[in-house]
Design a protein around this nucleic acid. Sequence first.
DNA 1: TAAACAAGTTTACATTATAAACCAAATTTA
DNA 2: TAAATTTGGTTTATAATGTAAACTTGTTTA
Lengths: 96, 96
Amino acid sequence: MFPKLDPLLHSELRLAVMSILAGVDEADFTYLKKQTGATSGNLSVQIDKLAAAGYITVEKGFKGKMPRTACKITPAGLEAFRGYVEALKEYLSASN
Amino acid sequence: MFPKLDPLLHSELRLAVMSILAGVDEADFTYLKKQTGATSGNLSVQIDKLAAAGYITVEKGFKGKMPRTACKITPAGLEAFRGYVEALKEYLSASN
DNA sequence: TAAACAAGTTTACATTATAAACCAAATTTA
DNA sequence: TAAATTTGGTTTATAATGTAAACTTGTTTA
């Protein structure tokens, strides 16, 4: 009845990040920070976890002279995200 | 863009419990345990938290000679649940 | 060149979730 | 009727998590 929710996605900030990345080609650290309102520290940690799980890829480069970190969702990440959404629906609709 | 998710509801087990309670008049401990597949300890703790927040009421009595704990969602709990669902939708639909 | 800023990372702490151990009463079994 | 099992939980201990604060490295500005 209640499917297990992927703990990696069941986190406010990581879910927000994945939700953003699911809709764009790529997004850099600063953009994600602005959109989510997260602190740099928290965002950095959560991005690491998503990357470690293979849900996103992280590319470090430079934009002019300033460092820039670009994040992109992977196929596995997209699939996990969709699965999470489906699972959640089971929870939210149980009351019907 | 991303509303804060009520941390009390953003928990797999508590969400399952609330989801069940949102759909029935009341449910007892054993029923909740069966439906969620949770361990007694975990369920006991999470029920306490929901009760402490005023999201549910817990009534202890007896069914014959055996103890029985009945849980019921409160109006505040129902409102919080609905609010959580709405907030979640913002997350899940951000990619559109 | 000193101060402020940008873009992160590391670390430390507090909160949470969860399972394991425990308990009391009732019921079943030998 | 004594022992074992089941029911219906609670308490406690531990591991995992989330988060903020402090720090780092390099750049821009006054």
